[in-house]
């Protein structure tokens, strides 16, 4: 627990000092969302229909954008080497990293989701569905993005490779989340989709941190 707290506090201190790390993905999210109405046309009906898909794709890309830097600095500065060499369980470090990355990249998206709903003409029920799916789905985005970041840590061209590896794994999430919002905007029940999202989240929470740990050790060598 002491290890976890120390790692967590360190992450937050770093985030407070490097504001670009969490501000840039947020701005990217907003800009991508603005591009869609400009590109597709601003008819309110059309926008409300495609809004769930757009919101989710934008969220997915902005989390991916923030993920590349997740372990990079620690790798370059030798922090990871010290952690591997130290005889302490590294899982706490990985968990603190993932949780703080969720707080810094996904939580802001949740907070500005009412604004997004206004921009894209979603009503209150659809907004609630967007909020709930983001709440359940974004931790999964962060977990898988952390895995991608850890796998490509010492690769030559990490950034684009990370997207190539992780985007196919996001597909189930995208399908269920946008189906839930679709159902909500039609006034149908969407608790089933939320249940599937929670199940996927539980599975990922149990397995992904271990895979991240393995990938980090592998890259440090």
């Amino acid at each position: 627990m002491v290890m976890f707290k120390a790692a967590f506090v360190r992450e937050w201190r770093l985030l407070a000092r490097q504001k670009a790390d969490w501000l840039n993905p947020l701005m990217f999210f907003l800009i991508v969302l603005t591009l869609f109405p400009l590109g597709i046309g601003a008819k309110p009906n059309l926008l409300a229909e495609i809004a769930p898909g757009i919101i989710w794709i934008a969220a997915l890309l902005s989390v991916l954008l923030g993920a590349e830097r997740l372990f990079k600095d620690d790798f370059r500065q030798g922090v990871l080497e010290q952690l591997v060499a130290a005889d302490e369980p590294m899982l706490f470090y990985v968990l603190a990293k993932i949780i703080s990355s969720w707080c810094s990249t996904a939580l802001p998206l949740l907070l500005i989701s009412p604004l997004i709903a206004l921009l894209l003409g979603l009503d209150a029920t659809a907004w609630l569905a967007v909020l709930l799916t983001l709440l359940l789905g974004t931790p999964l985005l962060n977990l898988l993005a952390a895995l991608g970041a850890a796998l490509t840590l010492s690769a030559d061209k990490g950034g684009i490779l990370l997207a190539l590896l992780i985007l196919p794994l996001y597909i189930p999430l995208l399908i269920f989340a946008s189906a839930a919002v679709d159902n909500a905007s039609l006034g149908l029940d969407y608790s089933g989709q939320l249940a599937v999202l929670s199940a996927m989240l539980c599975l990922a929470l149990a397995l992904v941190p271990l895979a991240v740990l393995k990938a980090l050790k592998l890259n440090v060598g």
Partner: peptide
Amino acid sequence: LGVIALSGAFADRQTGAKASALLALVG
């Protein structure tokens, strides 16, 4: 394509092989 790209992305061939093994399992 992800597995192939990952295995070729490292200067150290051994790391690439191990990373792509992990990715294949995740997949």
